[in-house]
């Protein structure tokens, strides 16, 4: 009797740079449709960990498996083809193209038409591009030059692009960094809704505890490269070790999320 493998299984992930252990034996797993937050102090190894999941960075040892298939050390573009979408901390979009064209490029790649020299790209999968933009609430912006978008809209465009290959897993590195509080909530609400509808697993890093406690199903905490806690938002919030290394006294995020606060 074998149990179906989890969507994402990370096992003993380790990486060091010049004698410093950035990530030490990190293991966790993620189910389809689950929203998992990765938090921890600056320099705890979150970004390194994240980059190793989609091949941006190669681990020294350890395994990353997607639905049981080993993807450790594969190139980002190969990992993407297996169904892992990603957004970046600092948005990475094609600035000289229109919003729709940004999505079309991803669809072209998904359709393996990258080396098609004489087709018409402006007409390529226009309908699907439109649907994806509608999905993230950017339908009205399709013809706008991407370089003119406000920051929050760029983040939503990134989400649409990440969804273009019907991913099974979404990796979001500080998805709401640099956004206003209202925009943060909107974006995460949208992400959660899409993830649940399409049964996509989401792993995100974040410093805004309001966002984390509100939207994550589960939280894992990284400190000095190692996992120190894992659990529901309430469990993590109440964990004294997490409070000591990361959460502090809770002065700088919403009172509703402070431990023991009655709100």
């Amino acid at each position: 009797m074998s149990v179906a493998p989890p969507l994402l299984a990370v096992e003993g992930l380790t990486k060091s740079y010049g004698g410093i252990h950035a990530v030490r034996g990190v293991s966790f797993s993620l189910r389809a449709g689950e929203i998992l937050a990765l938090i921890g102090p600056n320099g705890a190894g979150k970004s390194t960990c994240f980059d190793m999941l989609n091949g941006q960075n190669k681990p020294d040892s350890g395994h990353v498996r997607l639905l049981g298939e080993e993807i450790t050390g594969r190139k980002p573009r190969e990992v993407w083809r297996l169904g892992v979408g990603r957004t970046f901390q600092i948005t990475a979009t094609f600035a000289t193209m229109s919003v729709r064209e940004n999505v079309q490029v991803a669809l072209i790649s998904h359709g393996k038409q990258l080396f098609n020299l004489f087709g018409s790209a402006p007409k390529f999968d226009r309908g699907e591009a439109g649907r994806l933009l509608e999905l993230v609430g950017m339908g009205g912006y399709a013809d706008r030059p991407c370089g003119e978008l406000a920051y929050g809209d760029l983040k939503r465009l990134e989400l649409a692009v990440a969804l273009a290959n019907q991913p099974k897993l979404l990796l979001m590195d500080e998805p709401t960094a640099g956004m206003a509080p209202r925009e943060r909530v909107d974006l995460m609400r949208l992400t959660a809704q899409i993830a649940r509808e399409k049964s996509i697993g989401v792993l995100f890093t974040e410093h805004d505890m309001d966002v984390v406690f509100e939207h994550a199903d589960r939280i894992i905490v990284l400190n000095r490269g190692a996992l120190i806690a894992e659990g529901s938002p309430a469990e993590v919030r109440g964990n004294p070790q997490v409070q000591a290394v990361y959460l502090g006294e809770g002065l700088v995020y919403d009172a509703r999320h402070r431990e023991g606060a009655s709100a």
């Binding site: 102090p41 600056n42 002065l251 700088v252």
Partner: peptide, 14 residues
């Protein structure tokens, strides 16, 4: 000054 920092560091910043 608080952007992208963990809650605890933000408290030190205060």
């Amino acid at each position: 000054p608080s952007e992208g920092l963990s809650p605890k560091i933000v408290e030190q910043m205060v």
